[in-house]
Write a protein that binds this DNA or RNA. Structure first.
Lengths: 146, 146
DNA sequence: CCGACAAGTTGCCTTCGACAACCAATCCGG
DNA sequence: CCGGATTGGTTGTCGAAGGCAACTTGTCGG
């Protein structure tokens, strides 16, 4: 059990470093999509791109942040023309947030740059390495869920 | 290559969620160590506990954040009595930051609570799973380094 | 029709980090 | 030995980000 504890300690340490470095990386990529796009909004945008249009409250739930924060970030995305809003056919008082076409293009473009940048640094990773990493990260995320 | 791109996309998504959830988890754990301890300072403290006394500039380098921020967080740790400072024998103008004895005890205590909390959620992870996760996280961190 | 409720919005506060200007001690070339 | 250049660290100011709470508004159920 003490071995397991040591591993958990190492996990914390790596997460601490990751948390700080990722903040900067995300902010940089956000700026690449649009000069005035902030990091948090970029993450929302990415989630919308992957999972399709959804309402703000859904974003609140999956990211586990305050709905006020999401409201402001969606507002920013709207102002920058990166998302559009339309009424939710299933609930009259809700609105769906959808990635705009121009944002989709920009995200694909930035995604290409990112791939080039990380290609050499992760070149020794096999596809299985990558797949396993994503999977295990997902399981850890699930463990963190409230 | 398109498979690899998809995997990278999934990686981003998981990191986005992780980034937000971890923020809250870290803040909670910091409060458990000391009511007035903030999240960022807690991460510094954890790093000091694992790697032994070091100077502020070393923390700046490993975490990749501004030295002003580190200076303030170390100040907070000092005010709370969680770290002590002593002159660096190898460089007259530098100071070493070291975890205090009381802080060490508190960290071990919180570590125990944390283990209990995650024990059931990660119970299906083998020790190899855990070790592999830590290792691969370290490699990813290395890839993020500037 | 009316109260309960859910979706969003907004204001206020704290945490956090970037940037820059700044002090102090040390190192180094002459 | 001396005077800049360098390095360790502090401080002030700013924007990003989230938590909390009060509030608006539209919807649903009795």
């Amino acid at each position: 059990m003490s071995q397991r504890d040591d591993l958990m300690g190492g996990l914390e340490g790596e997460f601490g470093v990751l948390l700080h470095r990722l903040r900067r990386v995300v902010a940089d990529r956000a700026r690449a999509v649009h000069p005035d796009l902030t990091g948090a909004s970029y993450l929302l945008l990415g989630h919308l791109l992957e999972h399709g249009p959804m309402r703000s409250s859904c974003l609140v739930e999956t990211f586990g942040v305050d709905k006020g924060a999401v409201s402001r970030q969606v507002r920013q995305l709207l102002d920058l023309g990166l998302v559009e809003r339309r009424p939710d056919p299933e609930d009259g008082r809700a609105q769906l947030v959808a990635v705009s076409e121009s944002a989709r293009e920009a995200l694909v473009e930035v995604s290409g740059q990112r791939r080039k940048l990380l290609a050499d640094r992760l070149s020794d990773w096999t596809e299985d390495d990558l797949r396993g990493f994503v999977s295990v990260l997902g399981r850890y995320n699930a463990a963190l869920a409230d």
